[in-house]
Amino acid sequence: MANSVSARKRARQAERHRQQNASQRSHVRTKIKRVLRAIDAGDKAAAEEAYKAAVPAIDRSVSKGIMHANKAARHKSRLNQHVRSMG
């Protein structure tokens, strides 16, 4: 357990940041799942709308350090491929 005042403060900050990061990560995953659900349902219009909403959320997670840039690019690329290949 943290003993010094500064260590206790750091522990409080770390916990607050962990919770914020978890919330952001969950938010991005939800956006991605919405795109995947629309793709599975075969609804191209809904998939395109969900993809347009997901891309800024993914980019925001990169800028906040929640997700690595390459992982974000991979998600965007694969989601876009699936949406574009829909009939």
Rank of each mutant, 00 (worst) to 15 (best):
V28Q: 02
K71S: 07
A73V: 06
H27W: 06
R25N: 10
A11W: 07
Q20V: 15
R34G: 01
A45P: 12
S63D: 07
Q19Y: 07
A72H: 04
L36M: 10
G65S: 05
Q13K: 06
A11L: 11
N80A: 14
N3L: 15
S23F: 11
I39V: 08
T30Y: 11
S4C: 13
N70A: 02
A57V: 03
M67N: 05
K52W: 11
M1C: 15
K71G: 02
R16F: 06
H82G: 14
A57S: 04
K31G: 08
K76L: 12
A72E: 02
A53D: 06
Q20W: 14
D59I: 06
I58V: 09
E48M: 11
I39M: 01
H75R: 04
S26H: 03
K44Q: 15
A46Q: 06
A46F: 03
H75A: 11
A54D: 08
E15G: 04
A72S: 10
S61K: 00
I58R: 01
R10A: 15
A47I: 06
A45M: 08
A47Q: 03
A41R: 07
K33F: 09
N80G: 14
R25S: 12
A46R: 03
S4F: 09
S77W: 10
A45D: 12
H75V: 10
I32P: 00
A14E: 08
R84G: 05
V35E: 01
Q24K: 00
G65K: 09
S63C: 06
A11E: 11
H17M: 15
H27C: 02
G87T: 09
Q13D: 05
E48C: 08
A46K: 04
A45E: 14
L79P: 14
A14M: 06
A57W: 00
V62H: 03
G87Y: 03
E15L: 07
A53V: 09
A54K: 05
R8C: 14
H75K: 04
A53K: 10
D59K: 04
R29V: 05
M86R: 06
E49F: 11
A22T: 12
K64E: 12
R60Q: 04
S61T: 00
R10V: 06
S77R: 12
N80W: 07
R25D: 07
K76R: 10
I39L: 03
R34W: 00
N80M: 11
